[in-house]
Simulated assay, not measured.
Amino acid sequence: MQKATIQLETLTCPSCMQKIENGVKSLDGVDKKSIKVLFNSSKVRVEYDDEKVSIKDIENAIDKLGYEVIKSQVKDL
């Protein structure tokens, strides 16, 4: 398992949080209970099984929703 903090371009509305959360939750290998979208800091925190999904897959899912990923930090759990 890995834990990532993903910095996004500025989020403009609370509905953006829900959209991102639902999009990331739909990925196989993501710990659905761990997802936190932080509106004020425009960050996503998530834990995932790196044997099922990669950080690139998560970033691509966010990008497809229309949000720009600035950078990601990954830590082993």
Score class of each variant (00 low, 15 high):
Lys64Arg: 13
Asp31Met: 10
Val46Asp: 02
Ile55Ala: 04
Glu47Met: 10
Val69Leu: 02
Tyr48Leu: 01
Glu68Cys: 03
Lys56Glu: 15
Val37Gly: 02
Val30Leu: 07
Ile6Ala: 06
Asp49Ser: 06
Thr5Asp: 02
Met17Cys: 15
Ser72Tyr: 00
Lys71Phe: 06
Asp76Thr: 13
Lys52Asn: 09
Thr12Gln: 15
Ser15His: 15
Glu68Arg: 10
Ser15Phe: 11
Val30Phe: 06
Lys75Cys: 09
Ala4Cys: 03
Val44Lys: 05
Glu9Arg: 03
Asp57Glu: 12
Ser72His: 06
Leu11Trp: 01
Ser26Phe: 11
Leu77Pro: 05
Gly66Ile: 11
Leu8Ala: 05
Ile6Pro: 03
Glu59His: 02
Lys32Phe: 07
Asn60Arg: 14
Arg45Lys: 15
Ile62Phe: 07
Phe39Gly: 12
Ser34Arg: 11
Cys16Asp: 13
Asp28Arg: 12
Thr5Phe: 06
Leu27Tyr: 01
Glu68Tyr: 00
Val24Met: 06
Val37Thr: 06
Val53Leu: 07
Leu77Glu: 14
Ile70Lys: 15
Ser54Phe: 09
Gln18Lys: 14
Lys32Ser: 14
Lys3Pro: 03
Tyr67Thr: 02
Asn40Val: 13
Ile35Pro: 01
Cys13Glu: 15
Met1Glu: 04
Ile35Gln: 01
Asp63Ala: 10
Ser41Cys: 10
Ile70Cys: 01
Ala4Phe: 04
Lys33Asp: 15
Gly23Pro: 07
Ile55Phe: 01
Lys71Gln: 10
Ser42Met: 08
Ala61Thr: 14
Leu77Phe: 13
Pro14Thr: 09
Ile70Glu: 06
Ser15Met: 10
Ile58Arg: 01
Gln73Asn: 14
Glu47Val: 09
Met1Phe: 06
Asn22Leu: 11
Leu27Val: 00
Cys13Trp: 07
Ile35Asn: 00
Ser72Val: 10
Ser34Tyr: 10
Asp28His: 13
Ile6Phe: 04
Gln2Asn: 13
Leu8Glu: 02
Gln73Thr: 14
Asp28Ser: 12
Asp76Phe: 11
Cys16Arg: 08
Val24His: 03
Val24Leu: 01
Gln2Met: 05
Tyr67Arg: 01
Ser26Thr: 10
Ser42Trp: 11
Lys32Trp: 01
Ser15Lys: 14
Glu59Pro: 07
Glu51Phe: 04
Phe39Val: 12
Gly29Asn: 07
Asp31Ala: 13
Lys71Glu: 12
Lys33Phe: 12
Lys64Ile: 02
Gly29Val: 03
Asn22Gly: 14
Ser42Val: 08
Gln73Ser: 12
Gln7Thr: 07
Met17His: 00
Arg45His: 14
Pro14Arg: 09
Lys52Tyr: 04
Val46Ser: 04
Asp50Pro: 12
Glu59Phe: 06
Ile55Leu: 14
Val44Tyr: 00
Pro14Ser: 14
Asp57Gln: 09
Asp50Phe: 06
Ile35Arg: 00
Glu9Met: 00
Met1Arg: 02
Leu65Tyr: 01
Lys75Gly: 08
Ile58Ala: 08
Leu77Ser: 11
Asp31Asn: 14
Val30Ile: 13
Met17Ala: 11
Ala61Lys: 15
Thr10His: 08
Val53Cys: 03
Cys16Lys: 09
Leu27Gly: 05
Lys32Val: 11
Pro14Trp: 02
Gln18Val: 12
Lys56Arg: 13
Glu47Gln: 15
Leu38Arg: 15
Ile55Asp: 04
